[in-house]
Design a protein around this nucleic acid. Sequence first.
DNA 1: TTAGGGTTAG
Length: 502
Amino acid sequence: MARGRGRWLLPTRLLNVCLAALCRGGSLAAAESVLVDAIRLGLPPDVVTYNTLLAAHCRAAGLEAGLAVMGRMREAGVEPDAVTYNSLIAGAARRGLPIHALDLFDEMLRAGIAPDSWSYNPLMHCLFRSGHPEDAYRVFADMAEKGIAPCDTTYNTLLDGMFRAGYAMNAYRMFRYLQRAGLPVSIVTYNTMINGLCSSGKVGYARMVLRELGRTDHAPNIITYTAVMKCCFKYGRFEQGLDTFLSLLDRGYISDVYPYCTVISALVKKGRLGEANNYCDLMLQNGSRLDSVCYNTLIHMRCQEGKLDDAFELVSMMEDGGLESDEYTFAILVNGLCKMGHIEAAEKQLFYMEIKGMQSNVVAYNCLVDALCKFQEVDAAIRLLQCMKLKDDFTYTSLVHGLCRVGRYHMASKFLRICLREGNNVLASAKRAVIAGLRSSGFKNDLRKVRSVKPKRNKIKHHGKLQTSPLVGERYRLSMCTKPPLTGVCLALDFVGKIDWV
DNA sequence: TTAGGGTTAG
């Protein structure tokens, strides 16, 4: 090209600004045609041009689309940089693909590109969310060993991950440490804490953190209020939760679907279906794009109304709109079908779920186990339980109650002992039913065995997902931390390091 | 470019 570099410097920057604006506005096709025009005019796109497009494609269409842009940039002689890989790792993380994210991270290291905290943050986030906290911790340790300073997002991701992995008090102690050490604590940190503490049942601590937030300069936002509402609904302060929602609505603070879904699902749970429908209409009038969580909420509402045809129509609408049914959708449908007595149709849904290879199907299975027990088909429930890869407290509570209901106390006590030995538990009412049944039918031996069984320490389960083998380790270059070099990190690592990883 | 809030079962 005859044109000198200096002459094109400004136009390339302008091209990038223009592309970024188009991508932000969701006009990807327009951005692509601007790029075609620019190349035709002899204007050279640079790494920023491609990174802008790559991030937008990744967000809109997923990782594959992002990788295609990386292919195009290489063909054009533009080499990817840290930003390219960070966007791809984030793309993989958003889609819940930890192996892909780790592969990209590894590829980045092999290419000699130095990762920064934006390479690590989505990787950690994705590993925590996909039920691999021990790997997320290794990633954090690796970051510390390489001397990369964590940013506020790193700490927030770590806190959120610790809550998800079941280590609420470690997260709480780390939050206090961040405050003492003068490390970044923002409204995001407060929201993570309030939400995590509420979800793990530490309502008193949550209230304390909320009061503290009121004394700081950080302004609570819609995320804070949604977390508070959810906590009210969960812990018996229904009207207070609803009042919070209504006052936010009055003041015009509700601009997205999150608070709507929270309140609709709470109303459905209470059986207040009329009000749930009203807020559903408001949410639709609001004009926000419905995502899969919104659809799941609406499908659940239709199922609870007994309108299964409408529920399935919503599933079709959702899929036609390019959204996929997830494990929630299936669990909701299986539950809805069971409640209406359509056991065979529910079994069919479970079968689809298996074919789709969905990781977490324990809730859907539990719904069917419970329904079979309620219809006094306990032998079928036992057969189903034997097919389940993962069983939890819900599974055994339904079965034990079901067996007691039909007077099979010996069998109920057998499953209760298996359950306790596996590190699971049942509701106190199920345990009481077994003991009362054994006593009244004179099964003294079983009674003694049930009383003497020592429950195994409960394993941490990550959102009902099966624990899989570590993803980081032999296969990847990430190494365990030996001597963390940064002061702030040392102590943060200490909080995670004390966790007894299962 | 990157993080935080909303959906299911006993």
